[in-house]
Design a protein around this nucleic acid. Sequence first.
DNA 1: TTGACACGACACCGAACGGTGTCATACAAT
DNA 2: ATTGTATGACACCGTTCGGTGTCGTGTCAA
Lengths: 112, 112
Amino acid sequence: MSQNLAVRDVFDAIADPTRRELIRLLADTPELPLHELTPRFDMGRTAVSKHLTILKEAGLIRDRKVGRETRFRLHAAPLREVQDWVSFYDKFWTMNLMRLDQLLKEEEEETN
Amino acid sequence: MSQNLAVRDVFDAIADPTRRELIRLLADTPELPLHELTPRFDMGRTAVSKHLTILKEAGLIRDRKVGRETRFRLHAAPLREVQDWVSFYDKFWTMNLMRLDQLLKEEEEETN
DNA sequence: TTGACACGACACCGAACGGTGTCATACAAT
DNA sequence: ATTGTATGACACCGTTCGGTGTCGTGTCAA
């Protein structure tokens, strides 16, 4: 039982605003240890560590041990799943002035 | 107390796979009542109704009463917030073969 | 070698989540 | 008028979530 790192849905990982803020901080700086991330939030070290674990389970961050600290860095690749998902729906708001049923009529004609 | 519809974070609303499936179904068809949506899932009518409420709180669906049924339709506009958020990070994976510190060096040079 | 620091792991707790079943009501159909 | 359907509202329940505090261990510094 070397690692019990569960698999976590990316959509679930980014649902929490604290975790999105962590992602933003790790986008600014190549790598950051826990004790530098913690003071950015209104919560204790343990709570931040838990959020980092969840991000890690979703594959959104990697970490490496350097001395007595563990440095975390962003691994944004899994966010591609989110972009792929959401970009399917952009046609539903870029044409937001067009009536939805009209859009669907066009799709019906395409399939006929 | 006409409506106690809370405000819900869009990221939170799309975190659940059932709710993403609801969005997909409502993207296929202009509007659908609850009793037509329910048999698509392995859960009862009440559970699906709760998920629809959450989507409504996030502004992702609208509904209108037609006779004794309530028809739901997609309102995808709030998904734009998700796309705006995620597209900020696409540079972190489109250049995924480039070393991250090299990317950051370039940004340092830009600011100097 | 002693002490401070950084961290992981764990127990714990209240609140929210995701489901259930039931009841009341409004509308449709006959 | 009666019966069946579609729904909202609600109580309920087990699990997960998001936070806390604490303890043990490894590492750096003096």
